[in-house]
């Protein structure tokens, strides 16, 4: 895909710019702020732009807000990507098995998918984290637990159409095992529309992680934007910047991921339209 097509709309350009910034921030966090972002760095409640060593000020405990922002980007991005990858992996395997096997297997798997889809996703995540306890891995699993159903449905629909193609018949004719047909011949060709979902899933996962952290269910050993917003809530009137700054970061990150994803999908569609 040429870059020209990717950057055809201003929204996509903005999306990639924000996403690039987010990734750079996440990668640079340990370089620019090598210390523990949870350590006390200065006077509590230093306002932004007062002290050049603490450009965005400090929170109630005197922790560096800018360092928190950088390390929080790392957490958000890592959780978002890991949760999306897990959702897409689980969803496409379930969808492929359901669509390819058909019959009772399909029926059972799709009823399970329905069940997961009926329960509000955030409740599901909340329940898992409160039962198992908050850690980064559990948060990722909790988000994936509710997010895999979308990929599963799309993968299944795609597999239903692919399994009637001649190349699947040809694979059967040469004696390929059905498991190999499902995962080597069918699944890779069913992936593109599933992958088109990934930006939406990453964006939603970043939000869910923030919401869990806001409720105190994030990994306690990590800085998260959601946790920072929650921290600032107690002093919302006197020091609104403590909630507003990570809040803006969150909105921008979600927007950037979403716009960049749309840009990729549109760019791909444009290429297929021209072919």
């Amino acid at each position: 895909m040429s870059l020209g097509r990717l950057f055809r709309s201003p929204e996509a350009v903005a999306g990639f710019a924000i996403l690039g910034l987010l990734v750079a921030i996440a990668l640079l966090a340990p370089v620019l702020f090598p210390g523990d972002p949870l350590a006390i760095a200065g006077q509590p409640l230093t306002r932004p732009f007062q002290d050049w060593t603490l450009p965005l000020g400090t929170d109630r405990l005197g922790r560096d807000v800018l360092a928190g922002l950088f390390h929080g980007a790392r957490t958000s991005l890592a959780v978002g990507l890991a949760a999306a990858a897990a959702s897409i992996l689980v969803g496409s395997v379930v969808g492929t098995v359901a669509g390819f096997a058909g019959g009772l297997v399909d029926e059972v798997l799709m009823r399970i998918t329905d069940a997961f889809q009926t329960v509000p996703g955030f409740l599901l995540s909340l329940a898992l984290v409160s039962v198992v306890g908050p850690s980064l891995g559990v948060v990722v699993a909790a988000i994936a637990l509710s997010a895999w159903t979308g990929p599963a449905r799309i993968a299944r629909a795609e597999v239903l159409s692919i399994r009637e193609r001649d190349y699947v018949a040809s694979a059967r004719v040469i004696g390929m095992h059905p498991v190999e047909i499902a995962f080597r011949e069918v699944l890779p060709n069913a992936l593109p529309p599933v992958l088109a979902l990934s930006s939406v899933i990453v964006a939603a996962a970043i939000l869910t992680e923030a919401a869990l952290s806001f409720l105190g269910l994030g990994d306690p050993n990590r800085v998260t934007w959601g946790g920072m917003i929650a921290e600032g809530r107690a002093v919302l009137r006197s020091a609104p910047y403590l909630s507003v700054i990570p809040g803006i970061a969150l909105v921008l990150a979600v927007l950037g991921v979403y716009l960049a994803g749309e840009g990729v999908v549109e760019g791909t569609a444009a290429r297929e339209g021209q072919a």
């Binding site: 001649d166 004719v173 004696g175 011949e185």
Partner: peptide
């Protein structure tokens, strides 16, 4: 699957019959 080694097929449209 084993007997398929002995009984093969060529489809009309190879583009559709190939992954």
């Amino acid at each position: 699957r084993a007997i398929r080694a002995n009984l093969q097929m060529v489809f009309q449209d190879p583009m559709a019959a190939f992954n």
